[in-house]
Design a protein around this nucleic acid. Structure first.
Lengths: 124, 124
DNA sequence: TCGATATGTATCGGTGACTGATGTATGTTG
DNA sequence: CAACATACATCAGTCACCGATACATATCGA
């Protein structure tokens, strides 16, 4: 009998951005930094310390896997790719975010004094 | 001249749930625990240590404010409510989550080997 | 009546993800 | 030739979260 392990703990933003950046295909460390910055409209700059510790952690968890090494212009690139489990985790995280965002939006619209989008929004 | 302070750091899930739970109106500590559990379909149980340290932090940051105390059945209830700044932060966080979720979804659909939803989904 | 459970507040110490600083090496640019 | 960009990596510190614990009152079942 199998037991499905539900981690259920929400991903932190840097971790989410790494998985999302890898969804398109394999990338190396510095490529991930650029992709995460693009994904967040320049809001988030992945720090190298965050990146490499996260890559190591995610690899141990089986969400990503090494996908070859190349030397470009004399510099080593270590590539990573999403595993099927990583893609599943990302999908689950997306669902969580969408659902929470939708529910929070509804509650905000029920907020006492909510202005309904126009100035001085009283019913009369 | 005003400078808009962009915190830009993503909220952690417990913190987000507290703000979202308060969006409807004022609530007290244990009410927030119940509401957070409902918001997350029972996935997240706010821990009291997390709750009270978060309430204190959010109050200092001006995102929430005390909203009265009552004694119900001999037990004290301390109520909190969202400030306008807290509502703005929550709105911003919702936008962030929706945008990242949408972009991650697109990248997942571009994933090498993506099955397009049907079994053995090859074109040939 | 008495222990267990639920409600309600709060603190302490530990864990883990993130981050600033720093290190090493090579290629490019002014 | 110095500065900068690319590319790898580690260490120590911070901070939100969390398990454990504490205290008080009300309720419920044996």
């Amino acid at each position: 009998m199998y037991v499905v392990v539900m981690s259920s703990t929400a991903l932190h933003e840097p971790t989410f951005l790494i998985l999302a950046a890898l969804a398109e295909g394999r990338k190396h460390g510095y490529g991930l930094i650029a992709e995460a910055e693009a994904l967040s409209d320049g809001r988030v700059t992945l720090r190298v310390a965050t990146l490499y510790t996260a890559l190591d952690r995610l690899r141990k968890e089986g969400l990503i896997a090494p996908a070859g090494e190349e030397v470009i212009d004399g510099r080593l690139r270590r590539y990573y790719e999403l595993t099927d489990e990583g893609a599943a985790t990302l999908t689950q995280e997306i669902t969580r975010m969408e659902q929470l965002a939708a529910r929070a939006t509804i509650r905000l619209q029920h907020r006492p004094g909510f202005a309904f989008g126009w100035a001085g929004g009283a019913w009369a």
